[in-house]
Nucleic acid binder design. Structure first.
Lengths: 198, 198
DNA sequence: TCGATACCTTACCCGTTGGTAAGTCAAGAT
DNA sequence: ATCTTGACTTACCAACGGGTAAGGTATCGA
């Protein structure tokens, strides 16, 4: 049973998302699983590689989400919408992943030199291609489409990682209300971008 | 001379932005200043308070930027534009601050309970009020204006913190090109929001 | 001249960190 | 019955973390 590996990844993902790479210790993750930290080292060798494995799994999942059959039957406009809706973090799992990816964006500077990998590239490229097949975007440059995707992903991610803070600001019920409102306006923003800001 | 205090804040701001609260040690910051870590503890008491002071200074600077005389003479539309342009991180200092604020957004969950403070609130509220005085936004609800501001700030911040990663992806020259392109499209996005997504 | 205060250092403390080394133990394979 | 392999554990370690205690030194007002 290699389910243990996945359990470790689950726990690590949650904790890394919450507190960042440096904010989490191996012992910390191990504790929540009821094992010793050496169990983690047994499976992943080093903390760095454990972190890398977590990111790897997320990027694979993201790509898979784009390549679902259900997804492929949709118009490109709807593919974008559907993906961004997920990114906005309906489930707490989604929110965790957004947090982790933003953290990676921040910390990547140092790690990139060593790891040499960047985990979001493929999925961003894929999204860019999707946008380019949308109506009105055929003749746009790659850079233009990439920036547009980046705007939408950025706005969604930024909101998604703000959960805890917004709750602190407006309480649980205030947060729910603002989330709903943001969802509506994010659709409007997508419309604006899809029509090339017109 | 209390210039030392500011020097400490400068160094701490840079390092916290680069590597996050947990990723930086007091000794680390002290080293870049050529002093011992106890010098920092003398001035700020604890690491936590040093971090808080850094955030405090940033939030004050942000608010000041909104209240400049030069700023006050502008139309609200131009105030928004000007502020978001700065946020997009022309100077590396701006980018550092964006990084720090996003980190705070991520880490706030735990700290908020203890510190009880949230450093971006005032400035977000101020921006929201500015938007509400823009043409076409008078009758909008606070929530709607807040979400709109959040979208624009989010998109800009997300791009601003991506610098290192985008450089890794496309090299220095590629990054310059994409930055320029993003700047243009961010103006378009602001236009779209100002016209209430129409 | 004396004391106080601000600023900083050396010396030290102890819990935590990621990581190594070596052993245990059950499940298969031969 | 033996060997191997994978999945752990206990035991240990050197380095580093934030923080305390105490002392030194310069400045300054009385």
């Amino acid at each position: 049973m290699s389910g243990t590996r996945d359990q470790i990844l689950d726990a690590a993902e949650q904790q890394f998302a919450d507190r960042g790479f440096y904010g989490v210790s191996l012992a910390n993750i191990a504790e929540t699983l009821g094992v010793t930290k050496q169990a983690l080292l047994h499976h992943f060798g080093t903390k760095e590689r454990l972190y890398g494995s977590v990111l790897d799994r997320i990027s694979k999942d993201f790509l898979n989400a784009l390549h679902t059959q259900q997804m492929q039957t949709l118009e490109p406009e709807e593919q974008l919408r559907s993906f961004l809706r997920d990114l906005l973090g309906r489930s707490s799992r989604d929110a965790s992943r957004d947090q982790l990816l933003v953290r990676e964006l921040l910390d990547n500077r140092e790690r990139a030199a060593e790891a040499g990998a960047w985990y979001m590239r493929d999925f961003l490229d894929a999204l860019t291609q999707v946008l380019k097949t949308c109506y009105g975007w055929h003749e746009a440059t790659d850079a233009e489409a990439f920036c547009a995707v980046y705007q939408l992903v950025g706005a969604a991610s930024y909101f998604a990682i703000s959960g805890p803070t917004l709750i602190g600001l407006g309480g649980e019920e205030g947060y729910r209300a603002i989330t709903e409102q943001f969802g509506r306006q994010h659709e409007l923003l997508i419309d604006a971008v899809l029509s090339r800001y017109r």
